[in-house]
Computed example of a mutant assay.
Amino acid sequence: MIIKAKKIGLLSLLVLASFLSGFTVNTIISNNKEKMKKVTGIGGIFFKCKDPKAINAWYKLHLGFETTPYGTSFEWRDAEDSTKKGITQWNPFPQDTKYFAPSQKDFMINYRVENLEQLVESLKKENVTIVDKIESFDYGKFVHILDPEGNKIQLWEPKD
């Protein structure tokens, strides 16, 4: 009788432990989904213009931009960890560039993101138009998407 009671107690304890383990794992997974950062900031602003060299020169002269043929990079520090640096790129493109296609707009915004692969998988499930495949470079990973109005958006997971 005592052995049977111990077995029932042990079995009850195992069932309870199993339930609590499952609940804990489910809570962790749910919290990770809810807390997944998508966009963490603006990585760049790109726009079409008639004469990128003249625009670069104007911004350098009148607003103090340190321009190159690729625009300029604004360096900043992460608010949560001031030892981490980041950049936001500003870049004028020629009026006839095809880089913004399939969008017909004269601008494109680059958003900084964390975990680009996971974000793209999530966006696919949400039926967001993914324009191309993720590409990797020394300075990070990129992919392009379209918003509902056809604006091309560049997503960038930087290697700061």
Rank of each mutant, 00 (worst) to 15 (best):
D78F: 14
D78W: 12
D78I: 07
A79C: 13
E80M: 12
E80H: 13
D81E: 14
D81H: 08
D81Q: 15
D81W: 12
S82T: 11
S82G: 14
T83I: 10
K84A: 14
K84H: 10
K85D: 06
K85Y: 14
K85A: 07
G86W: 04
G86Q: 05
G86C: 10
G86D: 07
I87D: 04
I87R: 07
T88C: 12
Q89C: 07
Q89M: 14
W90R: 04
W90T: 03
W90Q: 08
W90S: 03
W90I: 06
W90K: 02
N91T: 08
N91D: 09
N91W: 02
N91C: 08
P92L: 09
P94D: 13
P94N: 10
Q95T: 12
D96P: 06
D96E: 14
D96I: 12
D96R: 07
T97L: 04
T97W: 01
T97P: 01
K98I: 11
K98G: 06
Y99F: 14
Y99C: 14
F100I: 09
F100V: 07
A101L: 15
A101S: 15
P102Q: 11
P102K: 13
P102C: 11
P102F: 06
P102E: 07
Q104C: 07
Q104M: 12
K105D: 09
K105F: 11
K105L: 10
D106P: 10
D106N: 15
D106K: 11
F107T: 13
M108D: 00
M108H: 04
M108I: 03
M108R: 05
I109M: 11
I109S: 02
N110T: 13
N110H: 09
Y111R: 13
Y111L: 13
R112G: 01
V113H: 01
V113G: 00
V113K: 03
E114F: 10
E114H: 13
N115Y: 05
N115S: 11
L116G: 07
E117M: 07
E117V: 14
Q118Y: 03
Q118M: 04
Q118D: 13
Q118W: 04
Q118A: 04
Q118S: 07
L119G: 00
L119R: 00
L119Y: 01
V120R: 00
V120M: 00
E121M: 00
E121N: 15
E121K: 10
S122I: 06
S122Q: 08
S122Y: 01
L123V: 02
L123M: 13
K125Q: 09
K125V: 08
K125F: 02
K125P: 02
K125N: 15
K125I: 06
E126N: 14
E126W: 00
E126Q: 08
E126P: 03
N127L: 09
N127A: 06
V128I: 03
T129I: 04
T129F: 01
T129P: 01
I130A: 01
V131F: 02
V131D: 00
V131L: 08
D132W: 01
D132V: 01
D132T: 02
D132I: 01
D132H: 00
I134L: 00
I134G: 04
E135Q: 06
E135N: 09
E135P: 05
E135L: 06
S136F: 03
S136R: 05
S136D: 04
D138H: 10
D138A: 14
Y139K: 00
K141C: 03
K141Y: 02
K141R: 06
F142H: 06
F142C: 00
V143I: 06
V143D: 00
